[in-house]
């Protein structure tokens, strides 16, 4: 191999969480974003970024989604538009890997937003804590074939509770981003990953 993959803690990870007006990335608007970086294996709360996002005109907020994020149209009417917020997001994503819980959702919404703004998706490397949980689960099944009890739990709050991480207030993109970043630190250790390339994507 020509280049060795860097040690995991020499990479900067930007943990991202989005609150959206629905599950369909093609139609639902982004309503809020929270981001926090992990540098040198430590979460830098002081660099956290958080913003509400004004939905594009005519966007619908699905009633079901309101239960998850508790944002109603009035909350985001005065928020900065996606074009401005995306500039902030972009400046951060360029810097390192994207880290999220169920990262596929964040990635599909962000890609959609980039293309709506006629921007090129920077193709950040992606680390998904849900994938890390699945990897951990596969390993424990391999090591303990008798323990075949059901599907692994992937719900963020419940996983954190089981791992002894603190409960943070719900419905805030930034706290979910911090939650994912902390979960990442714990799972990285449990998986014993030392090199960046060995992290499940």
């Amino acid at each position: 191999m020509l280049f060795r993959s860097p040690p995991w803690d020499q990479v900067t990870y930007w943990a991202v969480d989005l609150e959206t007006g629905g599950l369909d990335a093609k139609r639902a608007p982004i309503l809020a974003v929270g981001m926090v970086p992990v540098r040198g294996g430590v979460i830098q709360l002081g660099e956290a970024f958080e913003s509400l996002v004004r939905p594009y005109a005519g966007a619908a907020i699905q009633p079901d989604s309101v239960r998850a994020h508790q944002l109603v149209p009035g909350d985001v009417r005065e928020a900065p538009p996606l074009s401005l917020v995306l500039r902030e997001i972009h400046a951060r994503l360029r810097e390192g890997a994207l880290l999220a819980h169920h990262a596929g959702i964040e990635v599909s919404f962000l890609r959609r937003a980039y293309s709506a703004m006629d921007l090129v998706w920077p193709r950040p490397r992606v680390v998904d804590t849900a994938e890390m949980l699945l990897a951990l689960d596969r390993r424990s099944r391999f090591l303990h074939p008798d323990h075949q009890d059901g599907d692994p739990v992937l719900e963020l709050q419940e996983v954190r509770r089981r791992l002894g991480l603190p409960a943070y207030p719900p419905h805030r993109a930034l706290y979910d981003a911090i939650s994912a970043a902390e979960l990442f630190l714990v799972l990285r250790r449990r998986l014993g990953v030392r090199r960046f390339r060995d992290l499940p994507r």
Partner: peptide, 11 residues
């Protein structure tokens, strides 16, 4: 002070 706050994890 909170702007310098970090989260650290020690197994």
């Amino acid at each position: 002070a909170a702007r310098a706050l970090e989260v650290a994890y020690f197994p």
